[in-house]
């Protein structure tokens, strides 16, 4: 029990009301009333705020995740990198939001460190970029990977999925894809030059 809660139970007890049991049978209410963003229900806002306040990845894990994200989607002439677009924080949130992600992510990161130690006697964050790519090349191509790396392949595919979705649901991702909707407009049909390109028309 946290000190704050102990004080609360004493206060309640001293007012002659039922004393709170000495273990936390009921979670303490959030400190401040949660601000409910537009379009959310109160219970959803409370849940989101609680998840935001929790931490899942250790600093070491988060560092590894960040390196992986930027191997998957690096900064280049086209766009910023995955980490610059905030992808590691998104993955952290999804681990808390959908707990089924937790073991595959945490375990996968352990698998990666273990593989790295086997090969280079150092964890993944401590080896050189070239050494990292050596490992990644063994787990990034599901159809070519050797059977002994199958767990690594599954983990890397998950990281690729999360990184892709995390990146392409940001403004940077939208700009690169060329998505120009989600705004009031008038739909007047497919542009003429596109109709021509596909040999289609509205008359047929």
């Amino acid at each position: 029990m946290k000190r704050r809660d102990t004080l609360k139970s004493i206060a309640l007890g001293s007012l002659g009301m039922a004393t709170v049991p000495s273990t936390d049978l009921v979670a303490a209410p959030p400190e401040a009333p949660v601000k409910v963003p537009g379009g959310r229900q109160k219970e959803e806002a409370i849940r989101d705020a609680k998840l935001m306040a929790e931490k899942f990845f250790t600093p070491h894990e988060l560092k590894t995740v960040t390196i992986l994200c930027d191997i998957i989607l690096p900064a280049d002439k086209k766009t910023v990198s995955a980490s610059q677009a905030g992808v590691p924080a998104f993955i952290e949130f999804m681990a808390k939001d959908q707990p089924a992600n937790q073991v595959p992510l945490r375990g996968g990161l352990r698998w990666l460190d273990s593989e790295s130690i086997k090969r280079f006697e150092k964890k993944f964050v401590e080896i050189t970029p070239a050494q990292r790519i050596e490992i990644v090349d063994d787990i990034a191509y599901p159809e070519q990977a050797k059977p002994q790396f199958s767990q690594g392949v599954a983990f890397f595919s998950k990281m690729r999925d999360m990184t892709m979705t995390g990146f392409f649901t940001t403004r940077a991702g939208f700009d690169f894809l060329g998505y120009v909707g989600n705004t009031p407009n008038v739909w007047n049909g497919v542009p003429d030059e596109v109709l021509k390109q596909y040999n289609l028309s509205y008359d047929s």
């Binding site: 998957i72 690096p74 990644v136 191509y141 599901p142 595919s157 690729r160 892709m164 979705t165």
Partner: peptide
């Protein structure tokens, strides 16, 4: 969006005609 790209990106050639193995990482994923 973008999940499962490894089921697609090795099957179809890029505009310049090259094909790359399924999955992968880096700028090609963009």
């Amino acid at each position: 969006f973008g999940m499962g790209i490894q089921n697609m990106n090795g099957k179809y050639a890029y505009p310049d005609g090259t094909k790359l193995p399924s999955g992968g990482y880096g700028s090609r994923l963009k």
